[in-house]
């Protein structure tokens, strides 16, 4: 087992562990914080994958915006739900079953197919992932359209969220 593999395993364990804590936590605020941990672990995964930009964006957007948003939402909806009572609904076992089955299915397909058994190609000299990414995002031959559409989507979401959550008192 090479060093990279060991690091990967540790980070993967952290990710999975925090993810389990997210869905199993008794207090909702704890779940949100465990989500932050999960997201951070995922950023580390990105780094391991030489996708540095993604790691940074993950931290900034997911943790910096989305997780904060979750915490705000939890705080704003705390009237009745004082972290008491069961956190899982009556059919949680069915959900667990489904999750298990899904994982088992995916695992059996993925682990035992030879297509995924490859090693990464070494990065070429002078490889600049960020500028390539930037080119890809704004080049008309590449993905400028989805990029623009995504921005429109964000605008729509922004407007929509404001409107939906608007307090009309």
């Amino acid at each position: 087992m090479s060093l990279q593999q060991i690091i990967f395993l540790v980070v993967a364990a952290a990710t999975v562990g925090s993810a389990i804590m997210v869905v199993a936590s008794r207090h909702l605020i704890h779940a949100a914080l465990w989500l932050v941990a999960t997201l951070f672990s995922v950023a580390v995964i990105y780094t391991l994958l030489n996708a540095g930009f993604l790691a940074v964006v993950q931290v900034v957007i997911y943790i910096g915006a989305i997780a904060i948003l979750f915490i705000f939402a939890v705080m704003l909806t705390r009237r009745d739900m004082r972290d008491t009572g069961p956190q899982h609904n009556r059919n949680w076992w069915l959900g667990a079953l489904i999750g298990l089955v899904t994982f088992a299915g995916l695992f059996s397909v993925l682990f035992f197919s030879s297509a995924f058994n490859k090693t990464p190609a070494p990065l070429p000299a002078g490889y600049d992932a960020v500028s390539l990414l930037g080119d890809a995002l704004v080049s008309p031959n590449a993905y400028v359209l989805p990029f623009e559409v995504a921005s429109v989507l964000l605008l729509a979401a922004l407007v929509g969220a404001v409107y939906v959550a608007f307090n009309r008192k």
């Binding site: 999975v16 869905v23 939402a73 939890v74 069915l94 489904i98 994982f103």
Partner: peptide, 17 residues
């Protein structure tokens, strides 16, 4: 991760969860 997330969606009571 996906399976865990799926479990969370299906079994948590709180909407935010």
């Amino acid at each position: 991760l996906f399976s865990i997330g799926l479990f969370g969606v299906l079994s948590r009571r709180n909407a935010i969860a």
